[in-house]
Protein backbone atom coordinates (compact mmCIF):
# COMPACT_ATOMS: atom_id res chain seq x y z
CA UNK A 1 0.00 0.00 0.00
CA UNK A 2 2.66 2.41 0.99
CA UNK A 3 4.49 1.87 -2.29
CA UNK A 4 1.57 3.51 -4.05
CA UNK A 5 1.78 6.51 -1.81
CA UNK A 6 2.37 9.72 -3.63
CA UNK A 7 5.31 11.74 -2.53
CA UNK A 8 4.49 15.39 -2.46
CA UNK A 9 7.34 16.80 -0.52
CA UNK A 10 8.89 18.59 -3.45
CA UNK A 11 5.65 20.02 -4.76
CA UNK A 12 4.89 21.78 -1.51
CA UNK A 13 8.07 23.78 -1.44
CA UNK A 14 6.51 26.95 -2.78
CA UNK A 15 3.62 26.76 -0.33
CA UNK A 16 5.29 26.64 3.04
CA UNK A 17 2.95 27.93 5.64
CA UNK A 18 4.57 31.07 6.97
CA UNK A 19 3.08 30.78 10.46
CA UNK A 20 4.53 27.36 11.09
CA UNK A 21 7.70 26.88 13.06
CA UNK A 22 9.04 24.00 15.09
CA UNK A 23 8.60 24.64 18.81
CA UNK A 24 11.87 25.23 20.62
CA UNK A 25 11.79 22.02 22.62
CA UNK A 26 11.51 19.72 19.60
CA UNK A 27 14.55 18.80 17.61
CA UNK A 28 12.74 18.66 14.27
CA UNK A 29 9.32 19.04 12.67
CA UNK A 30 8.87 15.31 12.32
CA UNK A 31 9.26 14.73 16.05
CA UNK A 32 6.76 17.46 16.76
CA UNK A 33 4.27 15.95 14.33
CA UNK A 34 4.64 12.46 15.81
CA UNK A 35 4.39 13.77 19.37
CA UNK A 36 1.15 15.53 18.56
CA UNK A 37 -0.35 12.45 17.02
CA UNK A 38 0.73 10.21 19.89
CA UNK A 39 -0.92 12.67 22.24
CA UNK A 40 -4.14 12.47 20.27
CA UNK A 41 -4.09 8.67 20.27
CA UNK A 42 -3.67 8.69 24.03
CA UNK A 43 -6.56 11.11 24.27
CA UNK A 44 -8.68 8.75 22.17
CA UNK A 45 -7.89 6.01 24.69
CA UNK A 46 -9.46 8.13 27.40
CA UNK A 47 -12.50 8.65 25.18
CA UNK A 48 -12.89 4.92 24.61
CA UNK A 49 -12.82 4.24 28.34
CA UNK A 50 -15.21 7.11 29.04
CA UNK A 51 -17.79 5.58 26.70
CA UNK A 52 -16.70 2.16 27.96
CA UNK A 53 -18.35 2.80 31.31
CA UNK A 54 -21.68 3.24 29.54
CA UNK A 55 -21.15 0.16 27.39
CA UNK A 56 -20.47 -1.73 30.61
CA UNK A 57 -23.72 -0.45 32.13
CA UNK A 58 -25.54 -1.40 28.93
CA UNK A 59 -24.18 -4.96 29.02
CA UNK A 60 -25.08 -5.45 32.67
CA UNK A 61 -28.60 -4.06 32.54
CA UNK A 62 -29.36 -5.74 29.23
CA UNK A 63 -28.56 -9.03 30.89
CA UNK A 64 -30.51 -8.10 33.99
CA UNK A 65 -33.65 -6.64 32.40
CA UNK A 66 -33.61 -8.39 29.07
CA UNK A 67 -37.38 -8.22 28.33
CA UNK A 68 -37.44 -4.49 29.11
CA UNK A 69 -34.54 -3.84 26.80
CA UNK A 70 -36.11 -5.75 23.95
CA UNK A 71 -39.42 -4.00 24.42
CA UNK A 72 -37.90 -0.55 24.87
CA UNK A 73 -35.63 -0.71 21.83
CA UNK A 74 -38.67 -1.08 19.57
CA UNK A 75 -39.51 2.48 20.54
CA UNK A 76 -36.34 3.78 18.92
CA UNK A 77 -36.68 4.86 15.30
CA UNK A 78 -34.30 2.66 13.36
CA UNK A 79 -34.89 4.64 10.14
CA UNK A 80 -33.66 7.82 11.80
CA UNK A 81 -30.83 5.89 13.43
CA UNK A 82 -29.89 4.38 10.07
CA UNK A 83 -29.94 7.77 8.36
CA UNK A 84 -27.71 9.17 11.07
CA UNK A 85 -25.30 6.26 10.65
CA UNK A 86 -24.97 7.01 6.96
CA UNK A 87 -24.63 10.73 7.66
CA UNK A 88 -21.79 10.11 10.14
CA UNK A 89 -20.00 7.66 7.85
CA UNK A 90 -20.21 10.20 5.05
CA UNK A 91 -18.78 12.88 7.31
CA UNK A 92 -15.95 10.54 8.27
CA UNK A 93 -15.28 9.95 4.59
CA UNK A 94 -15.15 13.66 3.76
CA UNK A 95 -13.01 14.31 6.82
CA UNK A 96 -10.50 11.68 5.68
CA UNK A 97 -10.49 13.28 2.23
CA UNK A 98 -9.99 16.71 3.80
CA UNK A 99 -6.83 15.44 5.47
CA UNK A 100 -5.71 14.03 2.14
CA UNK A 101 -6.26 17.31 0.30
CA UNK A 102 -4.46 19.18 3.06
CA UNK A 103 -1.54 16.81 2.55
CA UNK A 104 -1.64 17.65 -1.15
CA UNK A 105 -1.79 21.45 -0.66
CA UNK A 106 -5.26 21.65 -2.18
CA UNK A 107 -6.46 24.37 0.15
CA UNK A 108 -9.77 25.12 -1.58
CA UNK A 109 -10.71 21.47 -1.75
CA UNK A 110 -9.87 21.11 1.93
CA UNK A 111 -12.21 23.97 2.78
CA UNK A 112 -15.00 22.43 0.73
CA UNK A 113 -14.58 18.98 2.31
CA UNK A 114 -14.45 20.41 5.80
CA UNK A 115 -17.63 22.37 5.08
CA UNK A 116 -19.39 19.18 3.93
CA UNK A 117 -18.22 17.42 7.10
CA UNK A 118 -19.58 20.27 9.16
CA UNK A 119 -22.91 20.11 7.32
CA UNK A 120 -23.15 16.36 7.96
CA UNK A 121 -22.48 16.91 11.66
CA UNK A 122 -25.22 19.54 11.78
CA UNK A 123 -27.57 17.18 9.96
CA UNK A 124 -26.82 14.49 12.50
CA UNK A 125 -27.81 16.83 15.31
CA UNK A 126 -31.03 17.86 13.54
CA UNK A 127 -32.11 14.21 13.24
CA UNK A 128 -31.13 13.71 16.88
CA UNK A 129 -33.29 16.69 17.84
CA UNK A 130 -36.34 15.12 16.18
CA UNK A 131 -35.63 11.80 17.88
CA UNK A 132 -35.24 13.40 21.29
CA UNK A 133 -38.37 15.54 21.03
CA UNK A 134 -40.34 12.47 20.00
CA UNK A 135 -39.07 10.53 23.02
CA UNK A 136 -39.76 13.41 25.38
CA UNK A 137 -43.26 13.77 23.96
CA UNK A 138 -43.97 10.08 24.53
CA UNK A 139 -42.55 10.15 28.06
CA UNK A 140 -39.83 7.68 27.13
CA UNK A 141 -37.41 9.17 29.61
CA UNK A 142 -34.70 7.95 31.99
CA UNK A 143 -35.49 6.24 35.27
CA UNK A 144 -37.73 8.25 37.54
CA UNK A 145 -38.95 10.49 34.71
CA UNK A 146 -40.33 7.61 32.67
CA UNK A 147 -44.07 8.19 32.19
CA UNK A 148 -45.05 6.17 29.11
CA UNK A 149 -47.86 3.74 29.83
CA UNK A 150 -48.57 0.37 28.18
CA UNK A 151 -45.18 -1.17 28.87
CA UNK A 152 -45.43 -4.86 29.70
CA UNK A 153 -41.98 -5.22 31.23
CA UNK A 154 -40.46 -3.92 34.43
CA UNK A 155 -37.65 -1.44 33.93
CA UNK A 156 -37.75 0.35 30.57
CA UNK A 157 -36.58 3.52 32.34
CA UNK A 158 -33.11 2.00 32.71
CA UNK A 159 -32.91 1.44 28.97
CA UNK A 160 -33.78 5.05 28.30
CA UNK A 161 -31.35 6.22 30.97
CA UNK A 162 -28.57 4.46 29.09
CA UNK A 163 -29.94 5.59 25.73
CA UNK A 164 -30.00 9.25 26.74
CA UNK A 165 -26.65 9.17 28.52
CA UNK A 166 -24.91 7.41 25.63
CA UNK A 167 -26.39 9.41 22.79
CA UNK A 168 -26.25 12.60 24.86
CA UNK A 169 -22.55 12.31 25.60
CA UNK A 170 -21.99 11.28 22.00
CA UNK A 171 -23.96 14.33 20.88
CA UNK A 172 -21.78 16.57 23.05
CA UNK A 173 -18.78 15.07 21.28
CA UNK A 174 -20.37 15.89 17.93
CA UNK A 175 -20.88 19.50 19.02
CA UNK A 176 -17.27 19.76 20.23
CA UNK A 177 -16.15 18.15 16.97
CA UNK A 178 -18.07 20.78 14.99
CA UNK A 179 -16.26 23.49 16.92
CA UNK A 180 -12.91 21.87 16.14
CA UNK A 181 -13.74 21.41 12.45
CA UNK A 182 -14.82 25.04 12.23
CA UNK A 183 -11.56 26.06 13.86
CA UNK A 184 -9.39 24.21 11.33
CA UNK A 185 -11.64 25.37 8.50
CA UNK A 186 -10.96 28.98 9.42
CA UNK A 187 -7.26 28.32 9.82
CA UNK A 188 -7.23 26.57 6.47
CA UNK A 189 -8.78 29.64 4.85
CA UNK A 190 -5.91 31.66 6.21
CA UNK A 191 -3.57 29.30 4.33
CA UNK A 192 -1.98 28.03 7.51
CA UNK A 193 -1.73 24.43 6.35
CA UNK A 194 0.43 22.79 3.77
CA UNK A 195 1.90 19.39 2.99
CA UNK A 196 4.60 20.40 5.42
CA UNK A 197 2.26 21.27 8.25
CA UNK A 198 -1.23 19.86 8.48
CA UNK A 199 -1.08 18.23 11.93
CA UNK A 200 -4.19 20.01 13.30
CA UNK A 201 -6.29 18.81 10.35
CA UNK A 202 -5.15 15.24 10.83
CA UNK A 203 -5.58 15.32 14.61
CA UNK A 204 -9.09 16.78 14.46
CA UNK A 205 -9.76 14.10 11.86
CA UNK A 206 -8.68 11.38 14.27
CA UNK A 207 -11.05 12.75 16.89
CA UNK A 208 -13.88 12.92 14.39
CA UNK A 209 -13.32 9.32 13.29
CA UNK A 210 -13.54 8.23 16.92
CA UNK A 211 -16.91 9.95 17.24
CA UNK A 212 -17.93 7.90 14.23
CA UNK A 213 -16.47 4.72 15.76
CA UNK A 214 -18.53 5.11 18.91
CA UNK A 215 -21.68 5.57 16.87
CA UNK A 216 -20.85 2.45 14.82
CA UNK A 217 -21.30 0.48 18.06
CA UNK A 218 -24.14 2.55 19.50
CA UNK A 219 -26.39 2.15 16.51
CA UNK A 220 -26.69 -1.65 16.37
CA UNK A 221 -26.68 -2.09 20.16
CA UNK A 222 -29.39 0.47 20.91
CA UNK A 223 -31.48 0.52 17.74
CA UNK A 224 -31.14 -2.93 16.21
CA UNK A 225 -30.70 -5.61 18.85
CA UNK A 226 -31.71 -3.80 22.07
Amino acid sequence: MSAKAEALGGAGESKLSPQFHVAHHFDKADTQFDAGRMGVWLFLVTEILLFGGLFCAFAIFRSKYFPSFVEAHHHLDRVMGGINTIVLITSSFTMALAVRSAQKNETKKTTLLLAITLACAAGFLVVKYFEYSHKIHDGLLPGGNFTAADFASGHPGIFFAIYFMMTGIHGVHVVIGMGLILWILLRNQKNEFSSRYYAPVENVGLYWHLVDLVWIFLFPLLYLVG
Partner: peptide, 30 residues
Protein backbone atom coordinates in the same frame (compact mmCIF):
# COMPACT_ATOMS: atom_id res chain seq x y z
CA UNK B 1 -4.74 7.81 31.05
CA UNK B 2 -6.50 4.45 31.28
CA UNK B 3 -8.38 4.72 34.56
CA UNK B 4 -9.32 8.37 35.07
CA UNK B 5 -11.90 8.49 32.24
CA UNK B 6 -13.92 5.82 34.04
CA UNK B 7 -14.01 8.07 37.12
CA UNK B 8 -15.24 10.81 34.80
CA UNK B 9 -18.20 8.80 33.53
CA UNK B 10 -18.93 7.52 37.06
CA UNK B 11 -19.17 10.99 38.52
CA UNK B 12 -21.14 12.23 35.53
CA UNK B 13 -23.67 9.43 36.05
CA UNK B 14 -23.77 10.24 39.76
CA UNK B 15 -24.46 13.90 39.04
CA UNK B 16 -27.23 12.98 36.59
CA UNK B 17 -28.60 10.44 39.05
CA UNK B 18 -28.79 13.09 41.74
CA UNK B 19 -30.14 15.83 39.51
CA UNK B 20 -32.51 13.89 37.21
CA UNK B 21 -33.07 10.47 38.86
CA UNK B 22 -31.95 8.51 35.82
CA UNK B 23 -32.05 5.34 37.86
CA UNK B 24 -28.84 3.57 36.86
CA UNK B 25 -27.59 3.46 40.46
CA UNK B 26 -30.94 3.79 42.23
CA UNK B 27 -32.31 0.44 43.50
CA UNK B 28 -35.86 1.81 43.77
CA UNK B 29 -35.82 2.44 40.01
CA UNK B 30 -34.20 -0.89 39.20
Amino acid sequence: VLATPVLGITLLLLIFERAFHIGIFDPTLG
